[in-house]
Design a protein around this nucleic acid. Sequence first.
DNA 1: ACGTTGTGCGCAAACGGTTGCGCACAATGC
DNA 2: GCATTGTGCGCAACCGTTTGCGCACAACGT
Lengths: 346, 346
Amino acid sequence: MDKLPTIKEIAIRLNVSVSTVSRALSNHPRIGLGTKERVQQLAKELGYEPNTQAIFFKQKKTHVIGVIIPYIREDFFSQAISGIESAAIEHEYTILFGQSYDELEREIKAVAAMKKQRVDGLIISLSKETNKYNHLEALKKYDIPVVYFDRVPTMTDSHKVFCNLYKGTIELVGWLFNNGYRNIAFINGPDKLRASKERLKGYIDGISKHQLKVDMQLVETTDLSKEGTEMAMKKLLNLKKLPQAIITFNDYVHMDATQYAAKNNIAVNKHIIFVSFANLPITSYTAFPPLASIEQHPYRQGEKAMDILMTILKNKDAQESDPDIYYTEELAPSLVAYKQPAMHGL
Amino acid sequence: MDKLPTIKEIAIRLNVSVSTVSRALSNHPRIGLGTKERVQQLAKELGYEPNTQAIFFKQKKTHVIGVIIPYIREDFFSQAISGIESAAIEHEYTILFGQSYDELEREIKAVAAMKKQRVDGLIISLSKETNKYNHLEALKKYDIPVVYFDRVPTMTDSHKVFCNLYKGTIELVGWLFNNGYRNIAFINGPDKLRASKERLKGYIDGISKHQLKVDMQLVETTDLSKEGTEMAMKKLLNLKKLPQAIITFNDYVHMDATQYAAKNNIAVNKHIIFVSFANLPITSYTAFPPLASIEQHPYRQGEKAMDILMTILKNKDAQESDPDIYYTEELAPSLVAYKQPAMHGL
DNA sequence: ACGTTGTGCGCAAACGGTTGCGCACAATGC
DNA sequence: GCATTGTGCGCAACCGTTTGCGCACAACGT
């Protein structure tokens, strides 16, 4: 409870000025050797530790970066934040944490909180609802750079890291094709999501690439709820010609879809095979794991986002900031095949 | 890039002193109505927002609390942090995030980082390795209160929130007994873990309570790795008399155990039924969900921990802090039964 | 002996606010 | 008419640290 030792304390005890103490501690050349030693000695004895709050305040820096994600419970985001943290530690930064729960309103509040705390930078994965960016533009006034990851905005004047799901989907279709599947269905996410648009484009181009006909009856969407997915599955299972394979939007949809299929007496991964996105570790324990999945490298996305942010901050310090440079890092997704599917339907 | 408006700015423009501006903005009674209005008007026009860093610095507060957990990827902890966050928002606090990855060394570094940032308080769930508390004791010097949750220390002079797993285990045994099971095995976690000790005590007392004989052959331990769990299962499946039910340390062990059992031609949840701890949402998608699970209320533990921390901080502000009061909140676990098991072996 | 250069250190401002105290003036009471 | 009380505002210190500048003194060259 007694006051922490300050530079002033040391100054008084040693009968020197605070500036001398400050310089002695930072090894300034103009300070005599003897004085330096006495200061450093006493500092050690007193267990002096500089008040970083005061320093940061003076430097107008906090050494804190904000991270806002939709849901920490989603494995994808907890991996991403781990990647961010690991990069942050290397640069001696710490992380201020906030969730948007996919709600714009919460996102705005979280951004405001970060602004209040004067974070040095912000890394964010946008909420599903985010359709305007005033709250994020506002950070420019405070000179707080923003790096987006995974759920990135459409505007080009922003720094971002993401996984190219267009290519990923093409790869997934290709893998199915190469394993002999032709009648490939797709349960996509909500239309307005960038992630959905990319996947759809990839699906269409992937199908076309192999000289197959794109049949929009094979494409359903889900709002990502269990019910939405079941409705989509119902339609697919009611088609005259049952699909041979189903691509799902992500592993959560996958799990709902396969569960529904199983309930409806489909031999999952035999009768119809399922492939997905996300590569959740947990799927290996599920009753019906996807036979292939597109890994989106959340950890690496997080690391990259932090690296970019650090570059921006360093440049800013060096007054070399060119406000017209925008960093974009596009990661290649990778297809993870869990098993070769038993050939079927050929 | 141009400077943010400060109180000084406003003072100069209005030709009043900074103190007047400061008071006008905080509605001090001694400031004339006219002046107040002019100040507030100009502040609005300029988009003035107080520099919280400066205020916090002066007040020696940060309005930030640190949270350190072992793994954010574990659903339990991501739920807990969500609970902490929700309570934090209510009190206008933000969260500085850190993981220990169950390593003491990392925990120490994370604590040091929090200390550096001068968090107002710390909420922590200890790493498995943590056997000494110097790094946490050190926070006392900085007057940073610590609240532990779930993985709490043994010492009594600490604030803590946890779920009584002793009672939970007794309940689990009782549920099995009531459903007709007698030959109940138990795969526990590492002996040194408090969580393991509690469960073991609960198991023994639960068994005894129903006039059954405690047979230590039915108790195995795992280091929580897949291999460790498989070894434990192997021993249990090799007993002359196969257990009728198996209690596992948590849902992760459960999944490894049931997977192993299935591979060895055990009809999981028929031949032997499985119950567990943790109540992961994901288990409902798994091939072999536990028939009952002990919910440990991570979200509520997080909320509670934050509430306690807030009480401590409030009292400290009011100078009413009695350093000898230690808050302990013991949550009752709840048993969640997924299905009534088909009666068996009677 | 005098200017030059180097060495060791202190003064004071600055970062952006808050706050105790005091001062000047007006209104009030008696 | 004089003391009292209230009103409106400014001065200056303070939080803990950094840093430009200047001062005093010594060592040096010539």
